[in-house]
């Protein structure tokens, strides 16, 4: 177990290139604040029928997958490019642990960013916490963190394959912005696209998150919370499967060391 944390910590220190003050504070604390402000204002002036709090809450919850997706994909990309991937996969290391260790240290970032976003919304926008059910809020935040870490690890495997993290991150976070109900309510999406939200992380988590502000108890949003958990588990397993397949394929094609697959 100690080895799992040593691995998690060092792989994070070695590969996360936002680990310096300007990049870290910028991406973990400033970006969500900008998103929240931007959407709240455009929503208000574009005459949206939705309450401006709708955007504030949605974007605060969205800050978690943002940092997780962009963080984890960049680490995977970098590992491939600097050629350490060959040494990691050529070792007798346990693959299941290798896979999850790539997410461990990013999870706390996801928690910091949503906390600071909510703090910002409370202080500067006057987000109302008076009726909040805290256990529900905390449970939804933790579950979003889990499912989005799983999702980001899964998406991250493709950053190894295509040797790029920008396109992958942009596509994955774009999907979440559009189809999980953070900006556009899921049931207002055209052509049954709302169902897409059911197989993405965040959708049910953010539904529970919103309910928490209205005082819903964890039991009352239990189905949302369970769904979010299930989605997280599915992406965890799917991602691991993809990771193993990529490994087999890389050995077959000889793509461990070269920076092309």
């Amino acid at each position: 177990m100690t080895n799992f944390f040593v691995q998690s910590y060092l792989t994070y220190r070695a590969l996360f290139f936002w680990l310096n003050w300007p990049a870290y504070t910028g991406n973990v604390f400033l970006v969500p604040v900008l998103y929240i402000t931007m959407l709240m204002l455009t929503g208000r002036f574009a005459g949206s029928p939705l309450d401006s709090d709708y955007y504030t809450k949605g974007m605060a919850a969205y800050s978690t997958p943002f940092i997780l997706i962009w963080g984890i994909t960049q680490c995977n990309y970098y590992e491939r490019v600097i050629g350490t991937l060959a040494h990691v996969l050529g070792s007798s290391g346990n693959r299941w642990l290798i896979y999850w260790s790539r997410g461990t240290m990013h999870f706390p970032n996801g928690m910091f960013t949503v906390t600071s976003s909510l703090l910002f919304a409370w202080v500067f926008i006057g987000l109302d916490f008076s009726t909040t059910n805290w256990p529900t809020l905390i449970a939804s935040i933790l579950l979003i963190g889990f499912s989005c870490t799983s999702f980001a690890l899964c998406v991250g495997v493709f950053a190894i394959v295509v040797r790029d993290w920008l396109v992958i991150s942009a596509a994955a976070s774009g999907l979440l912005i559009l189809f999980t109900g953070v900006v556009v309510p899921v049931d207002e999406l055209p052509f049954h696209l709302g169902y897409l939200g059911d197989v993405l992380p965040l959708t049910h988590g953010v539904a529970a998150f919103r309910e928490a502000f209205l005082g819903a108890s964890p039991g009352a949003v239990g189905s949302h919370l369970l769904w979010e958990l299930a989605v997280g588990i599915c992406y965890g397993l799917l991602g691991y499967l993809c990771f193993r397949l990529v490994e087999v394929d890389a050995r077959r094609r000889g793509a461990y060391e070269t920076s092309i697959l």
């Binding site: 080895n3 060092l10 346990n94």
Partner: peptide, 10 residues
Amino acid sequence: FFAALNHINP
């Protein structure tokens, strides 16, 4: 890092 990867105890 590589020691941890190779299951060598800390």
